[in-house]
Design a protein around this nucleic acid. Sequence first.
DNA 1: TGCTATAATAGTCAAAGATGGTCAAAAGAA
DNA 2: TTCTTTTGACCATCTTTGACTATTATAGCA
Lengths: 160, 160
Amino acid sequence: MAQLSDNIEQFIKELMSEDAHIELRRNELAQHFGCAPSQINYVLATRFSVDHGYIIESRRGGGGYVRIVRMQTRGEENLLESLLKRVGNSVDEETAGAIISNLYERKLVTKNEALLMKSAVSRNALALPISAKDVLRAAVFRNMLMQVFKNHEEAKRDDV
Amino acid sequence: MAQLSDNIEQFIKELMSEDAHIELRRNELAQHFGCAPSQINYVLATRFSVDHGYIIESRRGGGGYVRIVRMQTRGEENLLESLLKRVGNSVDEETAGAIISNLYERKLVTKNEALLMKSAVSRNALALPISAKDVLRAAVFRNMLMQVFKNHEEAKRDDV
DNA sequence: TGCTATAATAGTCAAAGATGGTCAAAAGAA
DNA sequence: TTCTTTTGACCATCTTTGACTATTATAGCA
């Protein structure tokens, strides 16, 4: 069942398919979808976070706007490094999920690989007290991240 | 006398006669049968479990759903079941690795996927006392195994 | 010109709403 | 009795809304 949030997400992604950044009016968009303006913030927070690979800028007042910018892809070595740093010793499921989605959007992993990674770091998989969960998730996730990049290096070598 | 559970089971199976996967609202279905919503979970647990050849996914909150996926081929269905049984509540790295290699040989996972799985269940990933390690590894592994089979079903669907 | 009030935006956060999950006790069947 | 089914209370998760707050541009006034 298509949720309002899903629809808004889709709408924004379509707008962004042409350009790497768009600017919109929060209130207009809310009116277009017949919802509370803060709904837009919810969608941005849950689907367009930095971990998802987007940056939000905005301005209030007359002529205000919300700008969504798709982060440019950095070099891969850099990316692995920064992702490992981001994950650190502890990471929650939401953040890990966002990062995985982002890897998929960057075509660094296939859909199946992404799903596999999500299943490995899911709540279900890590049956431990919550605090320990995040720590463990980080360890498993870091390992998989490194593997993703190894796979990728391997693939490039094969291409040649 | 046909039990409520039997009726619900039949109802779901009829829905699934056309498609290998359906999505339903737990509450709606419960209302349709005039029973407690948790009754649906009972039916799913007792008649649509992995060893019956089904996999259940769900989501809570607004727009939530329960999705039932039928494993299409007998051989694979048995395979997942027996693998899950073999893994059980505890599994060492070697055994997990052997199973993953086997999945690769059967072409149920790609090489990259296999490596990813190995990285998730490796010693390194599960930084815990050894005894707990095997238990945790089993949990993570079971989750990934189910995902592998879900991916496979998905792929078959896409082929069509 | 410089200041101020007002209008036009956007942000935050907590509460309410909408689902599904779990588990143990009660009820029913074998 | 013993096993299976059914129910209900309580929990977890995700979405939507609304009241209150913060910021900015601009028109009007001193």
